[in-house]
Simulated assay, not measured.
Amino acid sequence: MMKFKITQNIAILFLAVFLLSFTTAHKFYVSVTNMVYSEKNTSFQITSRIFIDDLEEVLKERYGINAKLATEDEAKIADEYIEKYIRAKFTIELNGEITDYDFLGKEYDNDVMICYMEVTNIDISDLKSITVQNEILTDLFEEQQNIVHLKWKGKKKSFVLIKENNKGMLNL
């Protein structure tokens, strides 16, 4: 498996372009996920930023849902299908075993949806590796890139995950 290395400056540049594009129609496909370990809560706190229009398109294509996200007419079943889709496309492995996470909810920021997730009760004494697989929107958009920033006890690693290379690993 070919690994993509990305410098912190390039990651910041990607994030800046992503954040500055909120008010215009985007011509690229990217999501940004941040995973930060909280020693206080012994958990990974996860936020994922996804363009609303892209997510609406995938919900319509996969499930036949006209979600109307971020509007007064948002479908009542939208949250259920958003969670279902994210669980199918975003996985975390601790020491090579898939780990369950809580989907805490979502909110909107301009034309981006922010999803909140958490992996709780992590036994850090036994943790040797963390693997993230992110296939969000790659089933609909060939150009989709999913940037993942992982912070754990002073270690930072960033991955650019694409359809052909959808996993990133941090060995501890």
Rank of each mutant, 00 (worst) to 15 (best):
K3D: 14
K3Q: 11
K5A: 08
Q8N: 13
Q8G: 01
L13F: 10
F14E: 06
F14W: 10
L15F: 09
V17R: 05
L20V: 09
L20W: 11
S21C: 02
T24W: 07
A25S: 11
H26V: 04
H26N: 05
K27C: 05
K27F: 10
F28N: 09
Y29C: 03
Y29K: 09
V30P: 00
V32G: 00
T33E: 03
S38M: 07
T42F: 01
F44T: 04
S48F: 02
F51S: 04
F51L: 12
I52Q: 09
I52K: 09
D53I: 02
D54S: 04
L55E: 08
E56L: 05
E57P: 00
E57S: 10
V58A: 01
V58K: 01
Y63R: 05
A67Q: 06
L69W: 04
A70W: 02
T71W: 03
T71K: 11
E72N: 11
E74P: 05
A75N: 15
K76E: 15
K76D: 15
A78T: 13
D79W: 00
K84V: 05
I86A: 06
I86E: 06
R87V: 02
A88C: 04
T91L: 08
I92P: 00
D102P: 01
L104W: 08
L104G: 02
K106S: 10
Y108R: 09
D111I: 00
M113L: 14
Y116M: 09
M117T: 04
E118T: 10
E118A: 13
N121P: 02
I124M: 10
K128H: 12
K128G: 02
T131W: 07
T131K: 11
Q133H: 06
Q133I: 08
N134I: 05
T138V: 10
E142D: 14
Q145A: 06
I147Y: 12
V148A: 04
K151N: 13
G154Q: 13
G154V: 11
S158Y: 06
S158M: 03
F159S: 03
V160K: 12
V160N: 06
L161G: 02
I162P: 00
K167R: 15
M169H: 04
L170I: 04
N171L: 12
L172E: 08
